[in-house]
Structure formats: C-alpha cells, structure tokens
Amino acid sequence: MALNTPQITPTKKITVRAIGEELPRGDYQRCPQCDMLFSLPEINSHQSAYCPRCQAKIRDGRDWSLTRLAAMAFTMLLLMPFAWGEPLLHIWLLGIRIDANVMQGIWQMTKQGDAITGSMVFFCVIGAPLILVTSIAYLWFGNRLGMNLRPVLLMLERLKEWVMLDIYLVGIGVASIKVQDYAHIQAGVGLFSFVALVILTTVTLSHLNVEELWERFYPQRPATRRDEKLRVCLGCHFTGYPDQRGRCPRCHIPLRLRRRHSLQKCWAALLASIVLLLPANLLPISIIYLNGGRQEDTILSGIMSLASSNIAVAGIVFIASILVPFTKVIVMFTLLLSIHFKCQQGLRTRILLLRMVTWIGRWSMLDLFVISLTMSLINRDQILAFTMGPAAFYFGAAVILTILAVEWLDSRLLWDAHESGNARFDD
C-alpha cells in the first residue's frame, strides 16, 4: 500500500549564491595573561575582544583620537594649579581661619623630617597626573615632529594605576569627618577644581587605549598563520617573532617567553612588605597634641575612634588600611606557593584573586592621604596640633611594595603550573 505524501511548494523562490571570495581570516594573537594562541577576527570600533580561555580583555573598544586626548590633557593642565594650590577646605580653629590644600599637606610631611613619605604622596597625587598630561601632550606634538614615541607609550600603561586623584578625593571626605570634632569646616574653591580634575582624569584614563596608539604610530604586520613560536610582548602586546637582537619589532624591548626574574622580584617585594606591615600596624601612625597632652593612634585605634562619629567612614578606612593590605599579602603568598608547588586545582579562583588584588591594591594609600591633609588643617603649635607617627613611612612603603609585587608577577606562570593543553579552566 503506497502512502500519498503531499508536496510542499515554497511560496518564495530560494536563491543560492556561491561564495565568490575567501572568507576573511583572523590574525593570530597570544593572550598576555595566559599565553593562549588564538585567531582574533577583525574588530570594529566600539567592540571589545576577550581571550577565549581566561576571559582577559585583549582589545578595548573604547578609543579616543589623539586630538581629543590632547584637549583633555590641556584642560587638566589648566585645572591643576587651582586643584593643588587653592584651598580645598576652610576650618575655623580657636577663632582663626585655616586653609588646607594639597601642596601644603605634602610640605608639612616633608617639613617634619619625613621627606620619603611626603614624596610618596607627591608622586601619586601630583607627579603621576602631571606625567600623564605631559605624556599625552608629548605624543600629540611628537607625532607631528617625527619624534620617538616608544618610551612614552611604554610608560603610559604602567602609569595608570599610580594616578590616585580619586583616592585622594575620598581622603578629603575622611579628613573632614575627623577634623569636624575640633573645628567648623567649609569647602574651599580649590575643592571644585579638584573634583573637576578627578572627573576629567577618570574619563581620560578610561578612554586612553595605549594598544590602539601603538597600532597608529607603529603598525606591524600581524601573524596570519598559526605558529607556536609566536611570542607576545608584555610592553606593547604585539604578537610576532623577535628581531635579530631578540627584541620586539614594535617597542624594541627584549621579547622573552616569560617575564625575567618574575618570581624572585615578586618574592622579594612580598617578604619586604610583610616585614614592614608589622611596625606599620604596631607603631603610632598619627599623633595629636591637645592642650599640651599627647595622644597617639595606631591604624586600628584611629579607626575605632573614627567609628564613634561615623561608622560608615570608619568601615571604608578599615577596608583600605587593614583589610586590603593583608588580603593582598595572603593572596600573593598563596599564588606564589601554588606556582612553586605546581598546583593544578582552583586555577579559576587564583586568576580571579590576582585580578582582584590588581584592582584594589592602590586604595591602601588612602590613610597616607588623610594624614597629609589633616596635617595641613590642624597645626596650632602646642594648643592643638596633628602630626604623623613613625608607622606612616612603614605603611606607605608596604603598600608600594605590594603594588610592585602584583605588577611583577607574570600571570602566565600560573598556567605553566597548571596542566598543559587546557582550553578551559575551572575549579
């Protein structure tokens, strides 16, 4: 018995066209964080690309023209004298008006014999932002004059995390709450300039795509075929072959399989920071003279006294001054041990922890910024005066060393310790 099946006739004509040209192939790229070699397709503007294995951002879609970056830099340069030299806060102490600005706080630190601690604050609040705007201006002028731009481009990517104007702005709020127990506070004209400078700096850093600047100024022929001998440069993120001198053909720094002496430098910085954190938390970090009496505060006791007036601000200072430094030390110690013992479990967790400490590390400088600003506000000789204690130097040095330890660690070593050939990683 035959089955009668109805015929289905399409209502619209289906047209099949042959592909007349070869589909576009992607360029081969190595991930600078996990060293995976993959094919990167062509990316349009405002599109980002991520590593298929570790999800690290390979290409950032946010990109401004150099002219727009230069305009932002010149605007920031105009704001800087007002943000640093004009009063941020006014207080009335014992019937006398006192003005506080950024430069005055750094000068008070240096004047009291601790120039190293003052230079830490100076670099993060004044030096690094000033280098940022002058570097962008150098790129703008240098591109037109045919100057060598490689050193500036190499420095810009590392400079971003040292620009800490946003953290200093939080420190202004913390210092205001600490001082309000002794005097009446009012915002100064410099505060508005400083807030504007923070906003412009944040926007500029978020749109400063150094890798795209490398592509514009020093374009290189990408690798179009897969080759395990391809290496990625950690300076400019170019994937290719080393030249005859073993250097990256684009930025001219040595092109090595792994960062040289990464573990040794990381261990040295980490152990030194552990040693410095002990006096930083045991010795007094601030000293207040009130009517001839002397009151010393460690980091913890200062947080407890701050909690009596504002528990939320005390929580912020606790996280930045105690929780973050010790968390960074514990995480980095764990990561280094996992590399030495070739741990194969929990790779995803370790990668996330490394990215976390990379982002939060700079916030530990908050305590030094609060001390710097408070020193310029309260300084009335023996009637009422505020000065920093010996722990300030140890704390600042420990924070900087932990930042350097994270920067010096080559994250690809975590993958080397893991089993080879993993296309995915999980716990």
Rank of each mutant, 00 (worst) to 15 (best):
L40P: 06
T75L: 05
A280W: 04
G173K: 01
R355H: 14
M388R: 04
W92M: 02
E228C: 13
C248V: 00
R247T: 09
Q295M: 05
V203A: 15
A272C: 12
L149N: 08
P151I: 03
I253A: 08
A56I: 09
S309P: 09
C251P: 00
K178C: 00
C248G: 00
Y218R: 14
R231T: 12
I330D: 01
W64Q: 07
W359H: 10
V313G: 01
K160H: 09
E212F: 15
R59E: 05
P24F: 06
F238V: 08
H207Y: 15
F192I: 10
Q295N: 14
Q264N: 04
I19Y: 04
D181H: 02
P222L: 13
C236Y: 01
R348W: 13
S65Q: 05
Q344M: 13
A183K: 00
F326P: 03
G20Q: 06
N101K: 02
K13F: 07
A272R: 00
G293I: 12
G127W: 02
I43W: 09
P325R: 00
D166M: 14
P10R: 08
I172E: 05
F238K: 08
Y394R: 03
Y50T: 04
A73I: 06
A128N: 01
V121Y: 04
G173I: 13
T75P: 12
G235K: 03
E296C: 07
D114M: 14
V399L: 07
K178Y: 01
A385V: 04
M109K: 08
I339E: 12
F123G: 01
P6F: 07
H261C: 11
V198H: 15
S273D: 12
Q33N: 10
W415S: 09
R424Q: 12
G240K: 11
L234N: 11
L78E: 01
D426R: 06
G235R: 02
A391Q: 02
A83Q: 03
C34Q: 00
K111L: 03
I378W: 01
C34M: 00
L352R: 09
G142E: 01
N422V: 08
P6S: 05
N4P: 07
A115M: 02
P254C: 04
S420T: 09
F217C: 15
R150C: 05
G361K: 01
P222N: 10
R158Y: 12
H252S: 07
R259I: 07
I177W: 10
M164D: 10
F341G: 11
M103S: 04
L283E: 11
R231Q: 11
V329T: 10
A423R: 09
I330E: 02
T387L: 12
L337A: 12
F318P: 00
I319W: 12
V163E: 09
H340P: 09
M164K: 01
P151H: 03
L352F: 11
S39H: 10
S308R: 13
P6W: 14
V121R: 00
V179A: 05
R62A: 09
S301C: 07
N209R: 14
W84F: 11
V232F: 13
F238P: 00
E161Q: 15
G346T: 14
R231A: 04
I172D: 01
T387E: 03
Q344G: 13
M120H: 03
K13T: 04
V152L: 01
C251L: 00
S39L: 11
S45G: 07
H237D: 13
A187E: 09
M76T: 05
L366D: 01
R380I: 02
I43V: 05
R348D: 12
T204V: 09
I96E: 01
G240W: 12
L153N: 07
H261R: 09
D367T: 00
Q7L: 06
W267E: 14
V210S: 15
L132R: 02
L276Y: 06
A423C: 15
T349G: 15
C54Q: 00
S176L: 05
V125A: 07
E296A: 13
M155K: 01
Q7H: 08
C34E: 00
N379Q: 10
T134I: 12
I316C: 15
L200N: 15
I322E: 11
Q29Y: 05
E21F: 05
L154Q: 02
I253M: 04
W140E: 07
I58K: 07
R250L: 12
A128M: 03
R221C: 14
S273R: 00
V313T: 12
A70W: 13
I43C: 05
P242W: 10
M365I: 07
A49C: 05
V16M: 08
I330A: 13
Q186V: 11
G113Q: 11
N422D: 10
L276R: 00
S308I: 15
C51A: 00
I14D: 10
L191Y: 02
D35V: 02
A115F: 03
S206V: 13
E419V: 09
L384V: 04
T204K: 09
P222A: 13
P87K: 10
L257C: 13
I172A: 06
S176D: 05
L337Y: 15
V102Y: 06
L409D: 01
F217M: 15
M72N: 06
P10G: 04
D227C: 14
P325M: 01
L283P: 03
Y241S: 14
L89V: 09
V174A: 14
V174C: 15
G292V: 09
